[in-house]
């Protein structure tokens, strides 16, 4: 019954033009966002995948690609950038204040860096401003990008980013910061344009953090999460024959089933049972954490656990999984 909580396919939330993807560190946020980007590009959509990291992972996922602030083509229809705060501030100063000679000098000053890093929200405002610019870009009459997928910072920082526009508008209602905040607020509020998506694994700490994030965003901002992606979900091997599978796992003999399963492998039944018992115990532990997400009333999507060691292999398998539908 718990299995029904999860959408096996990706719902309409994933078809909006701007996907803001966050989650606790280590849950596969980057892989899920990259999968969505590749999937969109494969459909022929002009796609921008944006990392926001001091240690970007894009280089591990795509061959011959090294993430940087400037837009670079990754493959057909797919471009990527690493939206770091400091170059974004440099660019912003140059564009907004039209003082190109000194902007670099100012922005590279250590003290200025520490201050802008510490000032309330500047590190949220300026990167989001860059995305606002990319979302508004045109190619003729059509938008320049069919889809922008943001691999946003992990939960704590993402929460600060989402709180920022409202907090800024409460404090100031005119001037540069207020104008930018209003623009960003419009994007984040527009549920036909933007989907906020949280990625989690079905374990204690990530589930707790996801619940807190969604509850806080819903309580403190007008923005709404459109989906939670449960990543690395273990397979339900028993399915329609679960009773038979479970009784064998628990120790009952089932020569017919086991002979068929082991045919041609040269392995023995004890090996098979030990491996599958481990997998099943993990799956049950996950189901328990899945129940803890239900009260959020946000649609849950599922991404399967991929038994591969390399990240590029996991990405390829995820893309295949979600392109098939």
């Amino acid at each position: 019954m718990t299995q029904q909580l999860l959408e096996t396919r990706l719902g309409p939330a994933f078809d909006r033009r701007f996907l803001f993807i966050t989650g606790k560190g280590g849950v596969g946020k980057t892989l899920i966002s990259a999968m969505l980007a590749v999937r969109a590009a494969q459909r022929g959509e002009r796609t921008l995948w944006v990392e926001m990291s001091e240690a970007p992972r894009g280089g591990h996922l795509f061959a011959d690609f090294s993430p940087r602030y400037q837009l670079v083509p990754v493959r057909d229809h797919l471009w990527a950038m690493n939206l770091r705060v400091q170059p974004a501030i440099e660019e912003y100063l140059a564009v907004a204040f039209k003082v190109p000679f000194i902007t670099r000098l100012i922005a590279r000053n250590t003290l200025f860096q520490v201050l802008t890093g510490a000032l309330p929200g500047l590190d949220s405002l300026i990167p989001l401003g860059k995305l606002w610019y990319e979302l508004g870009r045109k190619r003729g009459r059509k938008p320049y990008w069919d889809r922008i997928i943001l691999d946003a910072p992990a939960t704590g920082h993402a929460l600060a980013m989402l709180r920022f526009p409202q907090a800024a508008l409460d404090m100031v209602n005119s001037g540069n910061v207020a104008d930018r905040s209003r623009e960003i607020d419009e994007i984040l509020s527009d549920q036909t344009l933007t989907s906020l998506i949280a990625v989690t694994t079905l374990e204690e700490l990530p589930v707790d953090e996801t619940r807190e994030l969604v509850e806080q965003v819903h309580a403190e901002t007008p923005y709404r999460f459109a989906a939670v992606v449960c990543n690395s979900v273990f397979p339900d091997i028993g399915r329609d024959q679960d009773e038979r599978f479970q009784s064998w796992l628990a120790g009952a003999e089932d020569a017919g089933l086991i002979d068929e399963a082991l045919a041609g492998t040269g392995a023995n039944p004890d090996w098979l049972r030990a491996r599958l018992q481990w997998l099943e115990s993990r799956r049950r532990a996950q189901q328990q954490w899945l129940e803890a997400l239900a009260p959020l009333s946000v649609p849950l999507a599922r991404a399967p656990w991929i038994p591969a060691a390399s990240e590029a292999e996991v990405l390829a398998a995820l893309v295949e999984e979600f392109s098939a539908a």
Partner: peptide, 23 residues
């Protein structure tokens, strides 16, 4: 088929275990 799924996942786990161990 249940038997195929069982074999598939047990062998995948074994494969993953080897890749991890080699790394």
């Amino acid at each position: 088929q249940l038997a195929r799924r069982m074999a598939f996942w047990a062998l995948e786990l074994e494969h993953l275990a080897r890749e991890q161990t080699e790394s």
